[in-house]
């Protein structure tokens, strides 16, 4: 597959896109896993989202 005299421009464009999307995906999955672990840890310790002073309205 020959991409002609401007092949470098084409390859760099595709590599830059792959790199940016790859970094974005890695960050999203790393961040998600980090939050999942932290949430699981808090739930295992019996943490709740509301402080004891606040009651939930019945309706």
């Amino acid at each position: 597959m020959s991409l002609g005299p401007h092949a470098a421009f084409i390859w760099i464009s595709y590599l830059a896109t792959a790199l940016a999307v790859g970094v974005l995906l890695a960050w999203l999955f790393w961040d998600g896993r980090r939050h999942e672990r932290r949430l699981a840890d808090l739930e295992a310790r019996g943490a709740r989202r509301r402080s004891p002073g606040k009651t939930i309205s019945p309706d």
Binding site: H35, R38, L39, L42, E43, R45, A47, R48, R49, R50, S51, P52, G53
Partner: peptide, 10 residues
Amino acid sequence: IKAMTMAEIE
């Protein structure tokens, strides 16, 4: 996580 941490601190 933030809400749970704040509630726990409280």
